[in-house]
Write a protein that binds this DNA or RNA. Structure first.
Length: 818
DNA sequence: CCTCTGGAAGAAACA
DNA sequence: TCTGTTTCTTCCAGA
């Protein structure tokens, strides 16, 4: 496999840092945090170099080298930012390629690299029965797009001859061994690109100079640690060897991974190590399709017919060569170009809302491939989760997609180490159909008007993939160890009713469940914080803080800590727990004073519950406010659109204009303490949580905005120039209502994805509205979203400032990029 | 016989 | 490098 086309990437470390102007000493917390710059440049799971495209790529300008996106290498559908829609106002449904990036390949050389978004249309090309009814399959061939066949996403783990074929039922038995990682199907293509893309191929792999893996991935994968040598060869033996020897094409990497620049993190210690396995064990070349290497046979369709489809490259008429922009997107999509699974989507778009009526239990022991099924995910009160689509009055049944998503601090995306598992049996009453999208298994469950568009999720189990298998996957940056929390993610695509209806376009809604702990052991011992009553207070502390959750013990401790930009612990203080007032599901503590009472700026810290060494809950963000910032209910809150949109809240998605929030979240996972990251209130929460309200005690303050911006800029200079995109399809906005400074319990267990979507909710809606979202729809609207476009963060702040000064809501925001 | 479930052994990874 | 602890993965057995 040394001869493998991809091996070139393996042997040399691609200098992501240089290419993406990544800030080297990034914060260390979290599995693989990405900075803003990096995030912005992730072109998504289907981003490839235009130039590497076999023939279509057209423009000469595109012949420039294309920077592989770091996360593109990470895995299918991971962290790809929303595709950029063309700046053209009309909603075309297609997305422009990302602007060129200046790629520094050496100290003296810089390339400008366009990237192009490839979007799969496979499901639509071959519409599954369930959803085919409304699918617009007539996408047709666009001159601006290059259609590419999807590759088998499952070949990755399949060493068998049938590897190329998708095993729709991965888990229900060992037969499911063929299951693979959520990878994308574009590897082959990408490898091909590499072959074709000389410039890229030549400059991209730099000798091992990558500083540190984003997130400090553990070093458990020396060559010796390959699954081939693991104590069990079982299934992974085949495909892990494939991994070792094989490169991309056969591995069904996610489109993101696509770029063969992806280098297995585990083999990154030294270039020697990286090479050795392949060089030394060429005989282990995977059978059949896995023989990707030497011969570029990229476009070779490997997908099973059922999931076979075509990707197309969306080639913009004119490439933008300006600086990178992060744009928002609309939840409306062409029916033949649905959003990838890692794409943030709103839960609501008036009048539609996808909600989880009954949440799954916080614990569900996932089963391994070597085990039998452990059954479907159950609900807390018994039974199974229930998902409902409201606002949909058409007669046409829809399909509800379910997949396993992440539950970390970053935006939700398919979980690398878990897959949905279709549970069958006489006790399962819900019909479901399996499909695969970019390496992620999906269950399609009917949403019928007869059942009031409600689906009982009694057919969804969770399959655990072996860490070693996944971590060896090229580009995978997440670690599996202790990464055992997932969410069930539900997504549906529905045609809009008039007058919003647009031919060939569908609305994509998504809702994610509360986190589900999937390990056997930690489910029994790890404390889980699901809600907090307070997200900030004065540096003097002393306020009462209620933590809701589970697995709290009499010995549980609550600690506040602060980490420096380098990730090192700077301060830690234990909060006093009111034992008498605490229970197994509730901890009552007093916020400790911050160590510096004279701070002039809000300080973001974290808090967590500890049941002992290594038995810690995930961290929750908390902010200490300088005394001068102490909450003043009389202080008018800024009502500038970007931060206060009422209906924005209902949609809750970046597409509605809160891109700024999303960027903050995506790019600065360690900034959860920022005002924008107050835990949102997911409307889909089930009854057990409905009693929780919000306290929004900080996020409306202009100082908070400025502080946030400054903080981000400090850590990542690139954020300074970050642009915010706003969709043209924003529904009308209305001025925000000031929130009552009422203490309340805040849901915290849904950090990323909800904060993406529902921060607006925080800022613009009163609690009552949150609890009754429908009210909002009746509210008068003052603004039209069409005026919102791309706006920089500075502009946002500017608007806020102006708004505060004038206190006039509703200023139009015809902002210009950049 | 099958699925689902809980427990636990032993290896691997980590501190 | 060694050792103890934690986590992961697999296996077993019972309902």
């Amino acid at each position: 496999m040394g001869a493998a086309p991809g091996s070139g990437w393996e042997e040399g470390e691609f200098e992501f840092k240089l290419v993406f102007e990544e800030d080297p000493p990034r914060q260390l917390r979290g599995p693989s945090p990405r900075n803003a710059d990096q995030e912005q440049n992730i072109t998504g799971e289907r981003t490839v170099s235009a130039l590497s495209l076999p023939e279509s790529s057209n423009t000469d300008s595109q012949q420039a080298a294309t920077p592989p996106s770091p996360s593109a290498s990470q895995r299918a559908g991971m962290h790809s930012p929303p595709p950029r829609r063309a700046l053209v106002r009309e909603f075309s449904g297609t997305y422009e390629s990302l602007p060129a990036r200046s790629v520094q390949v050496s100290e003296s050389r810089v390339f400008e690299c366009p990237s192009i978004q490839i979007t799969t249309i496979s499901p639509e090309d071959d519409p599954p029965p369930v959803r085919g009814n409304y699918w617009d399959t007539g996408g047709g061939w666009d001159r601006e797009r290059l259609y590419l066949p999807l590759l088998d996403p499952f070949c990755y783990r399949e060493g068998s001859p049938g590897a190329g074929s998708l095993s729709p039922s991965p888990a229900s038995s060992p037969s499911s061994r063929g299951w693979l990682s959520p990878a994308s199907s574009c590897d082959s293509l990408l490898v091909e690109e590499e072959e074709l893309n000389d410039p890229t191929a030549h400059f991209c792999p730099l000798p091992s100079s990558r500083p540190t893996s984003p997130g400090g991935k553990k070093r458990r994968n020396s060559p010796l640690a390959s699954p081939c040598t693991s104590r069990r060869s079982s299934y992974s033996e085949d495909y892990s060897c494939v991994l070792e020897g094989g490169d991309g094409p056969s591995q069904s990497q996610g489109p993101n991974n696509g770029f063969e620049l992806s280098v297995p993190q585990k083999t990154r210690k030294t270039s020697l190590e990286q090479v050795s396995p392949r060089e030394v064990e060429p005989e282990q070349a995977p059978p059949a399709h896995t023989s990707h290497c030497p011969q570029p046979e990229p476009l070779q369709p490997r997908r099973e017919v059922s999931t076979m489809g075509m990707d197309y490259l969306s080639v913009p008429p004119a490439l933008g060569w300006g600086r990178t922009r992060a744009s928002a997107h609309s939840p409306l999509f062409r029916s033949n170009a649905l959003p990838p699974l890692d794409w943030p989507l709103p839960t609501q778009f008036d009048p539609y809302e996808l909600r989880i009526e009954v949440q799954p239990r916080p614990h569900h022991r996932a089963h391994y491939e070597t085990e039998g099924s452990r059954g479907a995910v159950k609900a807390s009160p018994g039974g199974h989760p229930v998902v409902k689509l409201t606002g949909y009055t058409e007669r046409q049944p829809l399909s509800l997609q379910v997949f396993v998503g992440t539950a970390d601090d970053r935006s939700i995306r398919p979980h690398p180490f878990y897959q949905i598992h279709r549970v069958t049996g006489k006790m399962v009453g819900t019909a479901s159909q399996e499909s695969v999208q970019a390496g992620t298994k999906i269950l399609d469950i009917p949403l019928n008007p007869e059942t009031n568009m409600t689906a009982l999720i009694d057919c969804a189990g969770i399959l655990k993939l072996r860490n070693s298998d996944i971590e060896l996957r090229k580009g995978e940056t997440d670690v599996g160890r202790k990464n055992t929390r997932v969410r069930l993610v539900f997504r549906t695509h529905l045609p809009l009713a008039p007058p919003l209806a647009q031919p060939g376009r569908v609305l994509a809604l998504q809702v994610a469940s509360l986190p589900i702990e999937c390990s056997q052991r930690s489910a029994q011992e790890l404390p889980v914080v699901e809600s907090v009553s307070l997200t900030s207070c004065s540096v003097e502390g002393g306020e009462e803080l209620l933590l809701g959750g589970s697995n709290f013990l009499p010995m549980s401790r609550v600690l506040f800590m602060e980490r420096g930009p380098d990730g090192k612990l700077q301060w830690e203080e234990e909060a006093h727990v009111e034992r008498d007032s605490s229970t197994e599901g509730l901890l009552c503590v007093r916020v400790p004073a911050y160590n510096d009472l004279s701070v002039a700026r809000p300080v973001s810290v974290c808090l967590y519950v500890s049941n002992g060494k290594r038995k810690r809950s995930s961290t929750q963000c908390f902010k200490y406010l300088p005394v001068m910032f102490k909450e003043d209910p009389l202080l008018p809150r800024p009502s500038a659109l970007p931060l206060e949109g009422g209906p924005l809240c209902s949609l809750g998605g970046p597409s509605r204009g809160d891109r700024a929030l999303q960027l903050r979240n995506d790019n600065a996972p360690d900034e959860r303490g920022l005002a924008f990251h107050l835990p949102p209130y997911p409307p889909a929460y089930s009854p057990p949580y409905t009693g929780h309200a919000y306290q929004d005690d900080y996020c409306h303050k202009p100082e908070a905005v400025e502080e946030s911006r400054a903080s981000l800029s400090e850590r990542n200079p690139s954020f300074e120039n970050l642009e915010l995109g706003f969709t043209e399809l924003l529904p009308p906005l209305r001025p925000a209502h000031p929130l009552p400074p009422t203490p309340a319990l805040i849901r915290t267990s849904t950090p990323a994805q909800y904060s993406h979507y529902e921060v607006w909710d925080h800022q613009g809606r009163e609690r009552g509205e949150r609890e009754a979202p429908s009210k909002m729809q009746e509210s008068p609207l003052e603004f039209t979203s069409s005026s919102i476009h791309h706006i920089t963060l500075e502009e946002v702040n500017e608007f806020i400032g102006e708004d505060i000064r004038s206190f006039q809501p509703g200023s139009q925001m015809d902002s210009q990029p950049g």
